[in-house]
């Protein structure tokens, strides 16, 4: 099939709307008849990524491309960046504030969860410039 491209702007100042892009992506993939397990994994990856963008990245852009079997998620923010990617990938490592912990996140599981459910995860970050996350999931 012709690849479907979904584009979202993630508001960095709004904990309430965090997850709107993930919700829309999930509903769109369902409508397109994507594999249920692929949808589940994609929803987890996108939602954790979106929360990260709100918590750490000051918002940003998300682009999801689906060709009928493979799904690519690109998340770009222009936030403070990650000083040590190895630390950030370690389960339990977190720099989140109490406010973030109060909404049920910030326990240092975002990136490890994304790695767990994506087939491929590439993380590029520069302090003071921002972070780019690329995930590929194959149905």
């Amino acid at each position: 099939m012709e690849p479907i491209v979904l584009r979202y702007t993630v508001d960095g100042d709004n904990f309430v709307s965090a997850g709107e892009a993930s919700t829309d992506m999930k509903r769109s993939l369902k409508r397109l008849g994507a594999d249920a397990e692929l949808i589940r994994r994609a929803a987890i990856c996108m939602y954790e990524g979106e929360i990260n963008m709100v918590i750490h990245g000051g918002g940003g852009e998300a682009v999801v491309t689906f060709d009928g079997s493979a799904l690519d998620i690109l998340l770009v923010d222009h936030g403070k960046g990650i000083p040590n990617i190895e630390d950030a990938m370690r389960e339990g490592f977190s720099t989140a504030t109490q406010e973030v912990r109060d909404i049920g996140f910030g326990a240092g599981m975002g990136l490890p969860n994304m790695k767990r459910y994506a087939d491929e995860l590439i993380l590029e970050s520069e302090v003071g410039v921002g972070t780019t996350v690329k995930m590929r999931l194959v149905g």
């Binding site: 904990f15 997850g19 993930s22 919700t23 589940r40 929803a43 049920g104």
Partner: peptide, 17 residues
């Protein structure tokens, strides 16, 4: 079941069916 009370609980539920 949760003692957390914010919109992200509902969003998480939707993500997980």
């Amino acid at each position: 079941l949760t003692g957390l009370c914010n919109p992200q609980v509902v969003r998480t539920a939707e993500m997980m069916d």
